[in-house]
Design a protein around this nucleic acid. Sequence first.
DNA 1: ATGTCACCTGGTAGGTGA
Length: 255
Amino acid sequence: MKLATWNVNSLAVRLPQVLDWLQQHPVDVLVLQETKLTDDKFPAADIEAAGYQVQWFGQKTYNGVALLSRVPATDVVKNIPGFPDEQARVIAASVNGIRCVGAYFPNGQAPDSDKFVYKMSWLEALQAWLRAELQSHERLVLMGDFNIAPEDRDVYDPVAWAGQIHCTPQERTHFQGLLQLGLVDAFRLFEQAPKSWSWWDYRNLAFRRNQGLRIDHILVSEALRGQISACEIDKLPRKNERPSDHAPVIVSLAD
DNA sequence: ATGTCACCTGGTAGGTGA
């Protein structure tokens, strides 16, 4: 079984690339972030024609998430229960006995901004909810755009980025808090090339220079850890014409 | 060089968010 996450930065723009990518990588589950579509505009028919079930949860202009699956997803949850939020950031569902949580974590903008305060409270709520969710769902995968680079080796220039958004101690502490729930960063279960990133700024020729961050992650629960056989970032879509600024991340589970 | 992209409003450019 394969699961993947991809921040597509507008599904209206990127739908052809998503469908192409699914043909090349027929994963069992794909969660999307930054669909940027209201629910009435979501291209469900095109996705279903490609052989996927789909659940979606969006809003105008910003945010928006979706969960695609080969087999029907059940017990769908949208956003964090008990955390009222006007922003559409989370979609969760059970697929093949695995609780799949797709999330678009707040960006946070800057450590001294109101958006950072929101990011911190959102992270608190996420952690509390996942702690409970793990009680009832031993086999759980949390994946998405975390907007957190967990360690300096996840940053192309850790000195320049020290204390900056995605790299603050507060954000990194929250990431560690997720690990302390019993989740593990699937990417780091395997030997990886140095300077492996999942996001490159559109500016500054950042992709050509490989100046990026690893901020898209797949965390798996302890009950699944022994089944994880691979975790990779697929850089190829970032080379497309009109690419998303993020690359997909894929995890493979042995049956 | 903060050198781009996507989306909005309200027009044919400017602001916002990432």
